[in-house]
Amino acid sequence: MSLQVVTANRLDDGLVVFLTADGGWSENIDQARVADGKEAGNALLAEASVPELDIIIVGPYLIEVEQQDGGLVPTKYREILRTKGPSVRQDLGYQAG
């Protein structure tokens, strides 16, 4: 089974975030806590879906990732775009640095 992380959008500014090891939310996917396997993935999502987080984030869900060059890269193109920003505006989003 593949590696997974939880992603969501932050409530106040709407930006893409990832659930981290300490239970916080980071804009950097490399800081995401990784779950290995279906059971671990479901547990991670359950942790991200508790009602108390409703004032921090919106719409948490699991995405599949791979380890690449010491970082985490989503397997689906849609999610790669979310970690970077619009491919047609490389001056915007996280890719702009």
Binding site: N9, D13, G14, L15, V16, R78, L81, G85, G93
Partner: peptide, 16 residues
């Protein structure tokens, strides 16, 4: 959600 949608506010891929 239905309230924001009545005011033109969507949540998209990167942001609102």
């Amino acid at each position: 959600r239905p309230l924001r949608l009545m005011n033109g506010v969507y949540l998209q891929l990167h942001a609102y």
